[in-house]
Write a protein that binds this DNA or RNA. Structure first.
Length: 265
DNA sequence: TACATATGATCAT
DNA sequence: TGATCCTATGTAA
């Protein structure tokens, strides 16, 4: 489920629910038992998102690093949570809130140096650092890979996933197969600007919507159904919403990228 | 029941 | 590039 906008939402919700409190931590599944035991009962200081990564900082210096990967999922409960399942890797509860985590690709303890090493590998995050467009433009300029592949590389831009990469390139009329370094400055800047606008909107609304104008009220966005929210993602063979040309897909960065061969050329 | 699929990333070759 | 890890869901059988 998660691209960067979702991860930032989790950071905020978990911060509100748990930060500043002493948290009961356990690993019902058992695969994080040692780490959970180390954190159990300690005070959670902050929760921060960078790209698709989450960092929970605990009193005493440990950092819990969580990455959901493709399958990871959080559930947040108020008051009486259901019992955890066999796949609940991590449970955190304090006061009236309980968070369950299942299926993460990373759930581990880091020290501050390790956290810093991880963060230094990430490119600018359009949600957290909207002013870092220069860094993104420079990163793109150094890549010879297709721009569609570069947009999935978290060292280039942190937080974009497979839906946003296709949608952002469509919004900017850029063919995803073009070499990243072939974009001119205006194109690269526009791409960053769209990433900032759309990911921030996604964080606010909790869903990826690129067809609707950004200013559209939450009510109308909520009424929109499934595919109508997107221009190209998973619309192979269907008519482009702008020009009617059948949408194509091609493998870029190891995953399917979707584009309109007429609008994006 | 089985299988396909998924908004991710790493490691080996 | 391919194999691998991890879980939930929808559809087919």
């Amino acid at each position: 489920m998660p691209e960067g906008h979702t991860i930032h939402r989790y950071a905020r919700r978990h911060r509100r629910a748990l930060a500043g409190q002493e948290v009961a931590v356990s690993s019902p599944q058992g695969r994080f038992s040692k780490g959970a035991a180390r954190l159990d009962g300690r005070r959670l200081e902050t929760v921060e998102a960078v790209g698709k990564h989450l960092f929970y900082s605990w009193k005493g210096g440990d950092i819990l690093h969580i990455h959901l990967g493709l399958f990871g999922r959080f559930r947040l409960y108020r008051d009486d949570p259901p019992p955890p399942t066999d796949n609940t890797r991590l449970a955190m509860s304090a006061d009236h809130s309980t968070v369950y985590l299942s299926g993460p690709s990373a759930c581990e303890l880091l020290d501050p140096a390790e956290e810093e090493a991880l963060r230094s590998r990430l490119g600018p995050d359009p949600i957290a650092e909207p002013g870092e467009g220069d860094s993104f433009v420079a990163n793109l300029g150094r890549r010879r890979i297709p721009v569609g592949a570069a947009m999935l590389d978290q060292r280039v831009i942190a937080g974009v996933g497979n839906v946003y990469r296709s949608e952002l390139l469509f919004l900017c009329d850029i063919d995803p197969r073009r070499p990243a370094a072939s974009l001119d400055g205006g194109e690269a800047r526009r791409l960053w600007a769209e990433a900032v606008t759309r990911l921030q909107a996604g964080e606010r609304s909790g869903r990826i919507v690129t067809v609707a104008p950004i200013e559209v009220g939450a009510k109308r966005v909520a009424e929109m159904v499934g595919e109508e929210r997107l221009y190209v993602y998973k619309r192979t063979g269907l008519g482009c919403r702008r020009c009617g040309t059948p949408i194509q897909s091609t493998e870029l960065g190891g995953r399917a990228a979707f584009f309109c061969p007429t609008c994006q050329s």
